[in-house]
Design a protein around this nucleic acid. Structure first.
Length: 285
DNA sequence: GCGATTTGACCTAG
DNA sequence: CTAGGTCAAATCGC
């Protein structure tokens, strides 16, 4: 979709930049604070205050970005449709030979995709798992879900969920395609909802990793379906995605997480992921 | 018995 | 040829 109109983008961009600049300044102060912990405490904000401010900046930025999307569509920062023919129509290969065994299979790629990171693989949609795959160089398998309304209404939305290697409590969810179904709940937008911070610390007990990779993933699947209108939208980061290097990038970023957040602040750490990768904030219009 | 999930096979893009 | 996405038979759970 990348439907951001230029006017919106430029207006929002300024606002976002302002927020990010402020966040950056706070981060710089925080850095100084770490380098010189014995500095003047009465004149500089505490680490917690700075972290809170940084998070606020990110939140505001995300909020602006998200709200700029009409109709609650998920935000896409730096879209992926770099290729003109991403519709998949112009596949070089000849159509499947219509073998008897497996049906006409068409790999969907470069469709409308968004990525989010959250503490839970749940969201406000109903999904049905249709596959799981071990991914090369990844400790955890990737799970594949499609909209439960696929058969009813031909909804084409699918999502892929993978536990993050460096932080198994977090899930990287890639949404592919948009929901064309009517009643499978509201669109998967996030961040803009008020109260996201409160709702972010969603139950994660079910996410506790077990040692068995395969089990770990599948065992946390169950509530995928029953989970319902609950607006438990876990705070998350929506980013661009079609970049095949995205996930590794995210991983790399996580390695840079130096902060140990205090209890009331720990929600924000992974949110900054999207900003940590330099290519996420490049707007295309 | 039915619907959901698991899992290995199949299929395609790169 | 390989990695990853999808299918569908087998299995599970209610």
């Amino acid at each position: 979709m990348r439907a951001l109109c230029p006017e919106h983008v430029s207006a929002n961009k300024e606002s976002i930049i302002g927020e990010l600049v402020e966040g950056k300044e706070c981060a710089s102060q925080l850095k100084l604070l770490f380098q010189n912990p014995s500095g003047p405490h009465d004149t500089t904000p505490s680490a917690q205050q700075l972290v809170a401010k940084i998070l606020t900046s990110f939140t505001q930025s995300i909020s602006v970005l998200t709200s700029s999307e009409a109709g609650g569509e998920i935000l896409e920062i730096s879209c992926n449709d770099r290729r003109p023919d991403e519709s998949g129509q112009s596949r070089k290969r000849s159509p499947p030979p219509a073998k008897d065994r497996r049906g006409c299979y068409k790999r969907r790629k470069a469709a409308d995709t968004r990525t989010k990171i959250s503490q839970t693989m749940e969201d406000e949609y109903e999904w049905r798992k249709y596959g799981q795959k071990k991914i090369l160089n990844s400790k955890f398998p990737r799970s594949y879900f499609r909209c439960t309304r696929k058969h009813d209404q031909g909804c084409k939305a699918v999502k892929q969920v993978q536990r993050r290697e460096e932080n198994p409590e977090m899930f990287l969810t890639m949404y592919i395609g948009v929901h064309t179904c009517k009643d499978n709940l509201k669109a998967p937008e996030m961040v803009t909802d008020s109260g996201i911070w409160e709702s972010y610390l969603a139950p994660t007990e079910s996410n506790k990793a077990s040692n068995d990779d395969q089990k770990a993933s599948s065992s946390s699947t169950p509530n995928m379906k029953q989970e319902y209108p609950k607006v438990d939208t876990p705070l998350s980061e929506i980013t661009d995605n079609s970049d095949p290097n995205l996930w590794p990038n995210l991983k790399d970023f996580e390695l840079l997480e130096p902060l140990k957040m205090s209890d009331n602040l720990d929600f924000g750490v992974d949110q900054s992921v999207g900003f940590g990768t330099d290519h996420h904030l490049d707007f295309e219009y």
